[in-house]
Design a protein around this nucleic acid. Sequence first.
DNA 1: TAGATGCATAGG
DNA 2: CTATGCATCTAG
Length: 737
Amino acid sequence: MAQTDLLFDSPAASPRDVVPVVVPVALDHAYSYRVPRGVTVQPGTIVQVPLGTREVTGVVWDDEPGGETVGHNRLKPIAAVHDAPPLGETIRRFVDWVSRYYMMPRGMVLRMVLRSPEALEPEAPIRGVRLVGAPPERLTPARRRVLEALVDGLAWSRLGLAAQAGVSVSVVDGLIDCGTLETVELRAGRPADIPEPDYGRLALTDDQQAAAEDLTATVAEGGFKVVLIDGVTGSGKTEVYFEAIAAAVKAGRQALVLLPEIALTAEFTDRFAARFGAKPEEWHSDVSAKARARTWRGVATGEVRCVIGARSALFLPFRDLGLIVVDEEHDGAYKQDEGVVYHARDMAVVRGRLGGFPVVLASATPSIESRVNADQGRYRRLVLPSRVGGARLPEISAIDLRQKTLPRGRAIAPRLQTAIDEAIGRGEQALLFLNRRGYAPLTLCRSCGHRFECPNCSTWLVEHRFRGVLACHHCGHTERRPDACPSCGDLDSLTACGPGVERVAEEAAALFPEARRLVLSSDMPGGTKRLKDELGAIAKGEFDLVIGTQLVAKGHNFPKMTVVGVVDADLGLAHGDPRAAEKTFQLLQQVTGRAGRAGGEARGFLQTHAPDHPVMKAIIAGDRERFYTAEIDERRRAFMPPFSRLAAVIVSADEREPALAAARDLAGAIPPADAIRVLGPAEAPIAVMRGRHRLRFLVIAPRQADLQGYLAQWLQGRRWGKGGIKIQVDIDPQSFL
DNA sequence: TAGATGCATAGG
DNA sequence: CTATGCATCTAG
């Protein structure tokens, strides 16, 4: 017996008898499984393996040096091999890379790749019918029509046949029971549409043409490279990167386009179809499981050529990906901050590097970090400085609220009112933008000064007059708005302070009673369907005045819109967010960019208390370069070493965390730290404002939500918690530069 | 991560 | 005695 064992253990035995398999649970290391006789697997093969009491889908991984093994008597065999293409080398290295970078167990990252379990099952065939037997004894008119439809001798799907004959499916089923028809299995699903690179090629402007040629050359050449398309709103970036997609398709490779929001996919799909004569496959949480499974399979076999998707599409197992486009690359929605945290824009670049293909980042307002990467020569920057079709960028002016304060309770300045009136008078559209949902951000009692606060968070409750509630925009808590003050009991003493979009709508109704008005806010009922309809109605000119929040800033062309008024341009600047200036710049640029897309005189108004703020000055002067230069400079001063003082490094407490070693290295590398404490696996820098001093923290914590709490507690213990310390958190240090 | 296990508490 | 909740452990 011992002899046999020895023989079995000897290195002479085939190395493929035991393979490492990564399983989709929170484990970092691959587990070893025995390969049954007659079964062959290779790295990437998708298998079913027993794990504890259950069975899970795993992937055969690559042998790794020093990989732990286990006594062969404890080895379990692979239970089944899936009939799916193996995961390629690139995506396996990508999983490894993401898991190390974000300190997430490798199994958890793999789980994102395997998130369409249905994709591994063969798609259920469609039941079709064919004429085989004699006509039934009772030949009703309905049955006759069915038989007439079948004279071509072909097989039909049950539903298709019923529709063709104008009868219900039960008539068809009845004929099956009679033996007149026989069921046959039809191949399920339609084959994926193949985009044609030259289908609907558009005439490009000189700027677009130059950028497009640069891009197509880059794609045709292959190899990793990052290109930043930096084009003003309305400059036709999409048409330019369509040419990159065409080049990838021509080269026989696959292309992926990432969008920050699924609300934008419908419009994109239409434009794509007009350009390529075929729709791309969609990948996001609103796509049905069946459609997702089909896309997953098609992408793995290479049958699907183009995918448009949300950040999770980055983890699809493309067979031969040749291009990723990240549209609106500056958008914060590319950050995933629950579960496995990652930044899809950054990981797109990583996937391109691992796969050896180009990545295109596109934006009218590039993020600071992408712009710096371009300046430093790491990315190639293509600039589109002007709008297509001779349209001019809107003329922006400030309405200085310090000089002429508005009457109490008013939010729309007379100048803005006049501009809107004039636009409507000319048959054009106007937009009033306020990035604040609800009626009023604060409700207080005039008698006793009581303020309504959220019981869970330390934030004020926002009045939503339309719904009659007070809501916390942080945690979602809602309560009915009472008539009397809960503190002093006074009746009708509660006042709404500050404007929200509902209140601006109320004022607009008074100022422009004749105008056809539409209010758009993300908390309005009706969902994406209604939103899509309403955006379409605006584009068709069915409204004169749109009053909206963030929603109206993105995508969608409103050709008749010529006036945009920003009710409170300073709004985003007040927060302690290190990116406040950048985000405000991006938002104001996008919103004012809604105006004048189709030519004509267009104007934008910023109501502000800080017309001299660098952000306002850059927007008003239409000088993007000025903003980027100033902000990069400021960012360097604020966030690049040397810091005034590193107050602490907080790291993970659990000895078993794989993050520990990395955390220790980090802590050791950045002296002098006051304290070390270990919390968990995701890394984030924290800036703490203490008076005028910014103290810099490096924190390792499970997730962003935990950081504030941990740190606040820790600061209390250090007697620093008093005196209104502001804590700023950002989840992704790499994004800081 | 998910399921199994062990222990404490609540309820009939 | 069972039901339920919570913390802890473990998987090849």
